[in-house]
Amino acid sequence: MYKIDQTANRIIEVDSPKFSELGFTERHHLQEWLAHTPAALGEELLIIQKEFDGFDDTRERLDLLALDKDGNLVVIENKLDDSGRDVVWQALKYASYCSTFTKEQIIKAYQEFLNKNGRSDEYAISNVVEFLEYSDLEEVVLNSTNTQRLMFVAANFRKEVTSTALWLLGNGISLQCMKVTPYRHDNDLYLNVEQIIPTPEAEELMISINAKAKEEKETVVKMNSASRLRHDFWEQTINAFQNSDCHLFENISPSKDQWISAGSGVSGCSFLLNFGKSEARIEVTLARSQLNENKLIFDLLNAQQMQLEAEFGHQLTWYRNDPKKVSRIYYPLDIDGYDKETWPEIIDWMIKHMTQLEKTFKVPLLEAAEQMKKTLQEPTSTV
């Protein structure tokens, strides 16, 4: 890394000492940095364990265990200045141990991690469901067969490690090698995290090569039972809405997801139908890109709670969802969603209450959005 000296029109090399020279250790520093900022590894990860030793008949510990956005377990091994010779073997062992973990075991391990790290006020189930963007844990698939991923983190990788990693990658094992480099300039320290295996160019090429095969496979492989069930339900629901007085979902296609949504007239805010195994919901979803905008709109609506609920005719659930970005206002119904004989009743319920929800919130939501914009444009007073 070089610093640009604009005055002299030159570049100056920035010092890159070893972690050990800076007094940093693998366990107390690098591991802690990644545990608290997993996005440094280039993707959204949910750290669910640290120094995990919950394997039967072994006292071995893996450095970090995470979930990715697809519900796959990610084994992260950190080796600081040098990868060593055995990091691949260690990670493969840990991945094999983790391959048998059930959903219940993963949730239990994550809750233990939260409790141990002073976060006992958080619930593993809620965090996992929200991270994976579901509304019901029963719909979540965790740790599918042979989907475990490996991630190696080190300042330098030995040839025997990179050679083995490339061979494993070529044989369908999902892995990455992340090179971490400390830099020092004056009294400031910096950390660069770079994926070296597979290289970004190679990864893009692999994606391109596999895209057509994946597309063809997806067209011939049947949806799993839950996805097909949801698709069938939404198909019936949309048809029923088209024959009703509620026109929100006229241009919506059936989905295999748990929800379908329609615009409200306010950017980032929508009217949403949710269908799960045990619960159906209608809701107003506030999902603008800026957290403070969602919270301000929510608060402006919440100030009218009594009037809005009187207009709607039922008590609503007001979920501000601090400190997360998305806020929700919803009305639920307990159901047996996998019993198709109940679907006509569920669909009638959705049409009736979504019609009233739109009528209740359409104008107040537009007014709240306008007030939000004015509030954020007002200059902050200074003393």
Rank of each mutant, 00 (worst) to 15 (best):
H36E: 12
V75Q: 02
L366R: 09
Y331Q: 09
C269G: 06
N156M: 11
T219S: 15
E367Q: 11
Q371I: 04
A8P: 00
S289P: 01
S255W: 00
K340G: 04
K217Y: 05
E51D: 10
E139I: 10
F275N: 01
L45A: 04
Y190I: 11
G337W: 04
L365C: 06
T25H: 13
E21Y: 12
E51I: 09
N239Y: 00
D322F: 11
E104V: 08
E235P: 00
R281G: 01
E77Q: 07
S244D: 04
N115C: 05
D232G: 06
M178K: 07
A35E: 10
D322P: 05
H36Q: 15
E160T: 11
N115G: 02
M372Q: 13
E104Y: 02
K93R: 11
V266H: 02
E279M: 14
I282D: 03
I346C: 10
L30C: 06
P182M: 11
F298M: 12
Y2W: 06
K103W: 02
K179R: 12
W343F: 09
D68S: 00
S135H: 13
I173C: 00
I196N: 00
W349D: 05
Y123E: 10
N117H: 14
G313K: 12
A213K: 09
F157W: 05
K179T: 01
A66D: 00
L296F: 04
K69E: 04
P38D: 03
N143A: 10
D70W: 03
Q371N: 06
E367K: 14
